[in-house]
Write a protein that binds this DNA or RNA. Structure first.
Lengths: 132, 132
DNA sequence: TCGTGCCACGTACAAATGTACGTGTCGAAT
DNA sequence: ATTCGACACGTACATTTGTACGTGGCACGA
């Protein structure tokens, strides 16, 4: 299934914005990105073209401007990306990454609370047979 | 400080093995990697050369064979890598990644237990003023 | 109708990456 | 002395990535 080349780092940055602000024109994506870092319009345009070429988005001309729409769900891309990272950096074990994230990058009280309930939920799901 | 180019995915894979089996020769690294995936000896050799070129390792000839030693701590590289990923894929917020990891990739009971206590620890550390 | 701004689209191009070959050398076994 | 196996090391080369320029069309205001 869906065997497409993975997104490069920069492409992923653009894809994220596309997911966030929904179907959007190059200019809109560019505007959204400019707020975070300096980047040329044409560069964003190229990234979008490549993202579409790789099958992660599709586009159509909406009177004079090309409108891009995501063609892959964030969840899928995130899974592929993270799986790869975990594989290469931790040999497939994801716990070290989880540890790193909650130990090295601060989490605030709300997040601690969220994690706590998330864990309780998983735990009880596990205790009374869950589907695979 | 330490402004070095980041490691590519494949280089990271090699670096991980280097950290794992300590100072090692190309052959040793190669052997360790072959167990997981097919890869050419010369390719590993090139990766190691590049890793050293980027400053993440150093090497010396140990009678006939070049012995590589890591020059950067895993923790540092992991931080840089993960920071970048979180930035590009989640706009800097790491919680989505944590959620993804514990929800989408299964964690077993032991890990749930570990997480639970990890969280409790962080929580209490937070409650009674901890250093930054 | 002429200019001007906005954008699509083709093209460019250096650097990084993935992947490896070939040559030369040194030490060990024959 | 000859051969062979192991490696280092230089080199190669197609792709991918990051980053952008330039050309040309079209719509809108002057």
């Amino acid at each position: 299934m869906t065997e497409r080349p993975s997104l490069s780092k920069s492409e992923m940055e653009v894809a994220r914005v596309l997911w966030e602000i929904g179907p959007a024109t190059v200019r809109e994506i560019h505007a959204a990105m400019e707020q975070r870092r300096l980047i040329d319009f044409a560069t964003v345009q190229t990234y979008l073209r490549r993202i579409e070429g790789k099958g992660y988005a599709c586009s159509e001309l909406q009177n004079r401007a090309r409108l891009y729409t995501a063609a892959a769900r964030p969840k899928t891309v995130i899974r592929e990306t993270v799986d790869d990272l975990v594989e290469r950096l931790f040999g497939g074990d994801s716990m070290p990454l989880v540890r790193h994230l909650i130990e090295e990058r601060g989490i605030d009280s709300d997040e601690i609370e969220e994690l706590r309930s998330l864990i309780e939920r998983l735990d009880s799901e596990k205790k009374q047979g869950g589907e695979s």
